[in-house]
Design a protein around this nucleic acid. Structure first.
Lengths: 351, 351
DNA sequence: CTGAAAGCGCTTACAG
DNA sequence: CTGAAAGCGCTTACAG
């Protein structure tokens, strides 16, 4: 069969070589049982030899499908320079793998919440559906979501499952996670547990974690001290500053529950820096279990959100919507991961 | 002008509403000066009101362009479960931003080096070009790249700039980086500097870092001790094991140069675990300056690859190839970032 | 400055 | 089991 080479072969070229119609080539390449096995094999072999691949634009134009999912990552950093939250970044990896397994490509896009992203991806037929990722400001968020829904865009959100919120959500049971974190600290004998994180209504996930924390305190008859609650957005530097602030205010505390690992890592740095030992003097627990949580020193005790499962769930959901199967919002169970920063494992420095 | 709403408007719908031909609509939407300003504005307004977006499949089919870049990330982890190297993951963020600035979408795909990815993305018209990212095994890599070139696929690699390597490469001057790291350790009075990393020909980047390290030793008349060189692939656990191995062999050393931050973090953990102080007893320097390098304790001294610049360079290069401008391979200068783990800054724990 | 027309490369009823 | 034909929604010479 020598050298069947050409620049940009089309199904028509293959038809000519195979001595069949272009329609038959199209069927054969999609493995249609309508085409006789023999013919099918021959055609596929020719396609392979020619390094032929179906033109996705043509196929997409015909079928109105792109087999692509757009992944929108909200950039909390205000754009420009800063790093994206590594937690979401690593989720992206799992999403991409899960999508590939189901035959979907993934288009990524970093977005400002303020951007006018809502409909374009699907309306332009670049994607069949959207996955939205990021700790959003749910107040502004909400109208955008409503606009998406109004435009019949298919989308799934990673975030808090909020009653009568538009769209489908896959999220973590943040309240339970916060509860587990605080209960664990209490079980270690800690009573003055500082809370670091933003709890305004624009951050319902963090608010839920706070609610869980409060529940645990109340269940243990520990009176919460408002002086131990410090607002902090999700940046390492702000975790650092939050602890500095507590120290400057002369607050005494024997534990810190930070609403994300990023904040927790900043908090630990500030504590060590002030000559306060972690976990001997102050226990620290984070939230997320991002990749490096296990590798900082002391290794961070944290509440794990299983991002692998989350990614699978998000992809399942969006593919479900695309293929018009019924989809439900889901709440996933978080899990406390005990490492060194809380002091529960005395003298054990690695698993 | 009330409610102009319809399910999936096309340029033809707009033409009808505007009372012009479909061709004029197409021109107007692409801002062609051929269309009278007035008409153009009117058409664009209608499009906006209808929430119309050009069907990318149709446009792509016509123009043979996708305005999309495929980002192929090589998965060193062997697939399945593991985390992707955070260094590359965060590069992805910058690439996506740079591409957006130039009007390109980014399609991501995690790949095994063994996969048959070489041509499909461009041949199927899903992408106009590829960016390849990851510490590849350059022996197997090479044939794949040759295949890409043979298929006239446009691609740019992040990696070592190797003479007569196929394709265009944007990379870091790894040799110089290794030199800076070792020279810095030597300047601190360290003489027995362990080297942790894989230096086989399949990892030319790491080999180059090793070469720089050797140069620095020789320039300082320090005789390199082969017992202080330990092979380690790019995983935290392997950095940990490498140090364990040195200790078990009874080697004495006062510094560690790890060929990546990930390995360095594992090394630090092993040292602390063995009761060896960092940096008092052993100085540690890594390579990459990944996001968390600054936030582990002690903060990691490392050789920074400016990933922002790298990302811009990669996108510039691939867009250049796509738009048929001449493109050259580039070597970027790395920069030593001094933090705590080397001991140069006594008593200073944060910037 | 505008329109009529061709054609990009597929998929899929429809007919046999 | 196979083919002829229509048509997806654009862009862009070509003609005026």
């Amino acid at each position: 069969m020598g050298s069947l080479k050409m620049a940009n072969p089309t199904s028509r070229d293959i038809a000519e070589i195979a001595g069949v119609s272009q329609a038959t080539v199209s069927r054969a390449l999609r493995n249609s049982p309508l085409v006789r096995k023999e013919t099918r094999d021959r055609i596929q072999e020719i396609a392979k030899e020619l390094n032929y691949f179906v033109n996705r634009n043509a196929a997409g134009l015909r079928t109105h499908q792109s087999n692509t999912i757009a992944l929108l990552l909200f950039d909390e950093t205000g754009g420009a320079d800063a790093q994206i939250n590594p937690f979401f970044l690593s989720m992206l990896g799992y999403i991409s793998r899960a999508a590939a397994r189901r035959g979907y490509d993934v288009l990524i896009s970093l977005q400002q919440l303020s951007d006018d992203w809502h409909v374009e991806y699907q309306a332009s037929h670049r994607a069949d559906g959207l996955i939205l990722l990021g700790y959003g400001n749910y107040v502004t968020y909400r109208e955008k979501l409503a606009a998406l829904s109004a435009a019949n865009t298919r989308y799934v959100i990673w975030g808090p499952v909020i009653k009568d919120h538009p769209g489908h959500t896959i999220g973590c049971d943040n309240e339970n996670g916060g509860f587990q974190a605080a209960r664990h600290l209490l079980s270690l004998g800690r009573k003055r547990i500082a809370f670091l994180g933003q709890t305004s209504p624009r951050s319902p996930e963090f608010s839920a974690r706070y609610a869980g924390y409060m529940q645990a305190l109340l269940a243990a008859n520990v009176h919460p001290d408002p002086g131990l609650k410090v607002d902090a957005d999700n940046l390492e530097e702000l975790g650092y500053q939050a602890v500095e602030q507590l120290l400057a205010a002369g607050e005494s505390f024997d534990a810190v529950f930070a609403v994300t690992d990023v904040i927790a890592i900043g908090a630990v740095r500030a504590l060590l820096n002030a000559g306060i030992r972690v976990p001997e003097d102050v226990s620290v627990v984070g939230f997320d279990d991002m990749p490096l949580a296990a590798h900082v020193t002391p290794a961070l005790t944290t509440v794990r959100q299983d991002i692998r499962l989350a990614a699978d769930g998000l992809v399942d959901a969006i593919v479900g919507l695309i293929e018009e199967r019924p989809v439900e919002s889901t709440l996933m169970a978080p899990k406390l991961v005990v490492r060194e920063s809380c002091g529960a494992k005395k003298g054990v420095r690695h698993k």
